[in-house]
């Protein structure tokens, strides 16, 4: 079983090929390079290094968001086009769950955070049990303040994971004290291998044509339109 994993949901880029539970190749970078410049070339490089033809993969996994709208769309467009034209099954995995998978061995709760600007974040709460993640709080777009409020319902230690945690580290430690555990830097990059690991535990296949990003937020113009039309 050969898996291709693609994550372009945020600044980092991760492309992996996993064969029979082993990573054959994985490229992880976090440079401010537009994903359109690098993602497809990185996929080509991964196939070359693995000495595989595109048609030899069995399963495609993609980070479906939340994250940068354009970033998520690049990965999703590549993944759904490959899945459709090569006739391979596709699985979408939350980019927050992918980060949480990096903290799979944490004894407590895991809270992946992706910054959404204006003091808002994308976040969810997960807990690992016997090497599998359970979702405790659904992924959502939420103000940082409201997130802190939601987290106050828990008493277990909480691992905060993701590159954007540092933006909120002081406030997290202030609000939660010793309950807040900050993940060491080497766990903060989203990895396509984590994505594949998470996908393996999911019993689902997407309808490729209808697969779209999980933005976790409606477009601003759409929100304004809905507001205006509710009033009227």
């Amino acid at each position: 079983m050969i898996w291709l994993g693609i994550d372009t949901a945020n600044t980092p880029l991760s492309i992996a090929i996993v064969e029979n539970g082993k990573i054959i190749t994985e490229e992880n970078t976090s440079t401010p390079i537009n994903h359109s410049l690098r993602a497809m070339s990185a996929i080509e490089d991964a196939f070359k290094r693995s000495k595989l033809e595109p048609s030899e993969i069995d399963q495609i996994v993609v980070a479906e968001g939340p994250g940068s709208y354009t970033g998520v769309r690049i990965g999703v467009t590549i993944a759904k086009t490959l899945a459709w034209t090569l006739k391979k099954p596709l699985i979408g995995v939350s980019s927050l769950q992918s980060l949480a998978t990096n903290g799979l061995f944490f004894d407590g709760l895991i809270c992946p955070i992706i910054d959404a600007r204006r003091k808002h974040v994308y976040a969810g709460v997960y807990q690992s049990k016997n090497g599998e993640l359970n979702q405790k709080v659904e992924d959502k777009h939420i103000s940082f303040e409201a997130l802190i409020h939601e987290l106050s319902a828990f008493t277990e230690p909480i691992l905060f994971i993701g590159q954007d945690v540092e933006l909120y580290q002081e406030e997290l430690e202030e609000a939660l004290g010793a309950q807040a555990v900050i993940a060491p830097f080497q766990f903060n990059l989203p990895k396509a291998s984590s994505l594949i690991n998470a996908a393996k535990q999911m019993n689902k296949t997407e309808s490729v044509h209808h697969f779209v990003p999980e933005y976790r937020r409606i477009a601003e113009a759409e929100a304004n339109w809905l507001k205006a039309n509710k009033k009227g």
Binding site: M40, P54, T70, I74, T77
Partner: peptide, 20 residues
């Protein structure tokens, strides 16, 4: 529109790569 262009471009690249 750059965001719009990127969808066609990335679909075209993935398709071209898949079939060389």
């Amino acid at each position: 529109l750059v965001g719009a262009l990127l969808i066609g471009i990335n679909a075209a690249k993935a398709f071209a790569f898949a079939h060389q």
